[in-house]
Design a protein around this nucleic acid. Structure first.
Lengths: 126, 126
DNA sequence: TTATTAATGCAACTTAGTTGCAAAAATAGA
DNA sequence: TCTATTTTTGCAACTAAGTTGCATTAATAA
């Protein structure tokens, strides 16, 4: 499973994530890479990186896919549970440095939790 | 602003929400009402009901729109902040009776927060 | 060096939701 | 009431995000 070969395409994506502290949307990545590779390839590599625990995926405010580098996750262990913030004005999206606790709900088994905060980022507040 | 006329279409939707304790997806509502009204109308009425504070909207696990009746909200005051749960197996989606507190993030203004839990519901656990 | 497996590209498709515009229905004013 | 105005609805066409099938290319293994 996961990444079998570290190809040029995969490295291009990895590089982008290493150079960015913010989260990146699939749409944005497809656009940025559209001269280098096909959008199908972008989506497939993103999926692989998520499976490998290199990045994690979440939904932004419009319901589209966003990705960010994982700090404390591996393929088998996705432990870090933090909220994401998206700026309503500039769209900047970031992982927040807050550890959420998984809420317990009686008679329910919770597999995953996702929290999205929407508001104004530092730059757009000024 | 908001609802100017209580039409037949609007009442059909209101009725569905009154008869259901679960959340309902836009997709599902469009399907259920497709003999009675156009999907554009469904989306427009849902938007109006949200504006009026009658229902609230949130994104399900696939990033699509879900709606549920508001308990403690009005057009001007959307106070109730609770997580939503969606069953990974049967898709059942519900408001959880837990009050979340709006996280404070320095240098950010938070307007809204949304939390989605995914797992197995009571029925699918058995 | 050939066989096998994995990665990629491309075009076509799907799905959720939106838009523009014309028609119908409701309301208001005289 | 009758007419003018406003609101609601339907419809068809469109958009945007993401997916699928399949053929091609590239990498690895035997």
């Amino acid at each position: 499973m996961g990444i079998k070969r570290k190809t040029k395409s995969l490295n291009s994506l990895l590089e982008i994530f290493e150079q960015s502290d913010e989260a990146l949307s699939a749409i944005d990545l497809v656009e940025r890479l559209n001269s280098k590779m096909n959008k199908t390839t972008v989506y497939r590599i993103l999926e692989r990186l998520v499976d490998e625990g290199v990045i994690h995926a979440f939904k932004g405010k419009e319901g589209v896919q966003w990705y960010a580098r994982c700090k404390d996750c591996t393929a088998s262990n996705h432990t870090d549970l933090h909220p994401h913030f998206q700026c309503r004005d500039c769209g900047k999206t970031e992982c927040l440095d807050l550890q959420l606790s998984m809420p317990k709900v009686s008679n329910h088994r919770i597999d995953s939790a996702e929290m999205l905060l929407v508001g104004q980022c530092e730059d757009c507040l000024a």
